[in-house]
């Protein structure tokens, strides 16, 4: 018998309505039926007073309160219902400095966009099965930052900007000098 996720209370925060609906449907299909969704961190802060989540899944870039500010609220505010609440951060920003920033805010897991049902489920299972101890220092409170190689979350997308692609392009007829014209020609043959 597998985990029963039906009663797990999930707070979903995402400002893009279409993406929010999509993730909510995915969560439901994966077994999570008790999901409340919010447009931004401000709404989530208000919502948490009446719906205490077992898990928070949040986007990063939102206004007026973004995903990292909300994470810091959960980890450090006197009004936080549980400073240990697991948090999964969804983000399309996978540059190394951003990943470090998310980690330092106290996020448990990163979920790189584009999201799939598999990656979403894997992150939820990681929260359940591989919880990390928390660490408190003078300037940090959150899940231990040493356990994971956070680079792994960059996934296959990080290869999109790898140097070998540029080298390949440089070998194309016309080189890199007339890129836009080359692309227009290629688009016509697509």
């Amino acid at each position: 018998m597998a985990y029963n996720l039906e009663n797990m209370q999930v707070q979903l925060i995402e400002d893009n309505r279409n993406m929010r609906e999509l993730v909510k449907m995915m969560l439901s299909a994966l077994g999570m039926k008790s999901v409340r969704d919010y447009e931004n961190g401000r709404q989530a802060i208000d919502g948490i007073k009446e719906f205490v989540p077992d898990l928070i899944i949040t986007d990063w870039m939102m206004a007026p309160v973004d995903g990292l500010e909300y994470t810091r609220h959960i980890r450090t505010s006197d009004n936080s219902p549980d400073i240990f609440t697991p948090i999964i951060l969804m983000t399309g920003h996978t540059e190394k400095w951003r990943i470090i920033k998310a980690r330092d805010a106290g996020v448990n897991e990163l979920l790189a966009k584009p999201i799939t049902a598999r990656t979403l489920y894997d992150r939820v299972l990681a929260i359940i099965e591989k919880p990390r101890p928390f660490v408190r220092t003078r300037s940090f409170f959150g899940p231990c930052r040493r356990r994971l190689n956070w680079q792994e979350y960059m996934g296959p997308e990080r290869r999109a900007m790898s140097d070998d692609r540029v080298e390949l392009f440089d070998q194309m007829p016309g080189g890199a000098g007339n890129e836009v014209e080359d692309i227009e020609r290629l688009l016509e043959s697509l």
Binding site: N4, N7, D54, E129, P131
Partner: peptide, 16 residues
């Protein structure tokens, strides 16, 4: 969380 989603263990093979 693990207590809450138990007593079952592991992934639901059909969920994804």
């Amino acid at each position: 969380l693990k207590i809450k989603v138990g007593p079952g263990v592991g992934a639901d093979p059909g969920a994804v």
